[in-house]
């Protein structure tokens, strides 16, 4: 299934805000092409862990590696900035609140970074925007501003924007949590499509059905630790830990 079982490596991740320890020694490997869901109650540290992977929320201890390079290297400020900017080009991220650039059209949202960072010409960038927006089903709204789009459409554009950098890894931080229920599916469909293309993805989600249908592995986090992990049919059907069962009882129709 994979040529590199340690494509993403999190080693002894630890994070504290003052006295509050939100991540307690978490280690995790994700293979290339694998799709991992992180579930758990709010405050469990799952978003913090995700945001540590591209160093948006720096860890206070531990290491993150992507494809053989350490992401959170300790370097002098200037060198570190250069290093992290290069790393982040390889790590796409999709946010709960989309964070589309409201002053730019869908096309410009997608082309800005590739033009600026990869030196794409206007024509190349336009072709890229059309390709990526077509993939998420937003081609016909290519010249719309975010304010003219629904939440689901915004999120699809945000996914296209991240994909346009051709990242090695995609992070989804509750990508559907802010959406009206009837708009969730269009975003899930897009993520499913990416899963079929075997893009490595780490997905923080509240959508158990989606996680069960799409992911290769599910991690259940609570209070800063990974309580239990395994394939979805184990985690959702036959979890070993009582904490996992208790959580699933609240979130699944027919919980184990």
């Amino acid at each position: 299934m994979s040529d590199n079982p340690e494509f993403v490596q999190i080693r002894h991740a630890q994070k504290s805000f003052g006295k509050l320890e939100v991540l307690k020694d978490i280690s995790l490997n994700v293979a290339r092409g694998q799709i991992v869901a992180i579930i758990g109650p709010s405050g469990s540290g799952k978003s913090t862990l995700l945001r540590a992977i591209n160093d948006l929320d720096p860890l206070t201890g531990g290491e993150v590696w992507l494809d053989g390079t350490q992401v959170n290297k300790s370097l002098p400020h200037r060198q570190y900035e250069k290093h992290i900017n290069a790393m982040r080009q390889d790590i796409g991220m999709v946010f709960q609140h989309f964070n589309l650039f409201p002053h730019l059209t869908a096309r410009e949202n997608v082309t800005m970074a590739p033009k600026l960072l990869k030196g794409l010409s206007d024509r190349e960038a336009d072709a890229l925007a059309e390709e990526q927006l077509d993939k998420v089903g937003m081609l016909e709204r290519i010249d719309y501003y975010p304010s003219q789009l629904s939440g689901g459409q915004k999120q699809r554009v945000a996914i296209a924007r991240a994909l346009a950098m051709k990242p090695k890894l995609m992070l989804f931080d509750e990508a559907t949590s802010a959406l009206d229920p009837e708009l969730v599916d269009e975003v899930n469909q897009v993520m499913k499509k990416l899963a079929e293309e075997h893009i490595t993805m780490i997905i923080v989600t509240h959508e158990m059905d989606f996680a069960a249908a799409v992911c290769d592995r599910v991690l259940f986090m609570d209070q800063g630790v990974v309580v239990e992990e395994g394939p979805p049919w184990v985690i959702f059907r036959n979890p070993k830990k009582e904490r996992t069962r208790a959580f699933l009882r609240k979130h699944l129709e027919n919980a184990p």
Partner: peptide, 18 residues
């Protein structure tokens, strides 16, 4: 300006200045 805007920019690989 919402800090999510800055985060989205940085996530794409833009420098602080960019």
């Amino acid at each position: 300006i919402d800090k999510g805007q800055r985060e989205a920019a940085r996530t794409l690989g833009l420098s602080q200045f960019q």
